[in-house]
Write a protein that binds this DNA or RNA. Sequence first.
DNA 1: TGTTCATATGAATATATGTTCATATGTGCT
DNA 2: AGCACATATGAACATATATTCATATGAACA
Lengths: 116, 116
Amino acid sequence: MCSNDLCEIKSVRSELIDEISNKMKDNDTIQKTCNLFKILSDNNRVRIILSLQDRELCVCELSLLLDMSQSSVSHQLRHLRNSNIVKFRKENKQIFYSLNNDEIIKLIEKGEEYES
Amino acid sequence: MCSNDLCEIKSVRSELIDEISNKMKDNDTIQKTCNLFKILSDNNRVRIILSLQDRELCVCELSLLLDMSQSSVSHQLRHLRNSNIVKFRKENKQIFYSLNNDEIIKLIEKGEEYES
DNA sequence: TGTTCATATGAATATATGTTCATATGTGCT
DNA sequence: AGCACATATGAACATATATTCATATGAACA
């Protein structure tokens, strides 16, 4: 028997559901992970990250390399900054971006390896 | 010197950009990876996947467990089916969903481990 | 065959997100 | 001080996506 108002189903295994619910990861943890994956869900953002592997590039070089407008690159870099994925360094008029570390590359590669 | 119309920047390192461009991964590969990450960018979808680890559940059990409407669960399961992440089995009136394999769990855990 | 349970699905809605456009900020140079 | 280069940013716009609502489909059962 099932006494919920979400659905009328009678054949729910309540004990199993309770058990899974208790073992379920903390929602904040899941949300944090999802936010990271969301960063990696955009083609242009991933291409920016891949471009910054092993070197630093300035905004216009990224813009030129990836065929994106300067504004678009800048907006995406802001997301990557906020997510602590990239850092930057000012040199004269230019701002050079680079990866904070290689962890993000490894994660992308794990995604790439999935079912391939 | 730089002869592009994307930006007016003169200090672009053209040779470096060409080199990176040549080494850049195939765009289809990147897009495919991004699509996978996009699947994992939604909290409810990830919770469905985590719930299906080690067992099969029917739609209403998922709905009850995750406090989502039946319709919403069903829509999300469609995405997971289309991405080949889950499979299903019919038993009488119910449809039991389960993971195709554990690769997706491992990927989620990799994301969780990132900067933690 | 009519009813209930279980799930799927299309349309509508609200929200989130990426890009563009215009402009602001800031640096170096003449 | 004025100008060109380099980047950042807010607003507007278009698109994508998640949820809800209503309804369709389908199986079991009386």
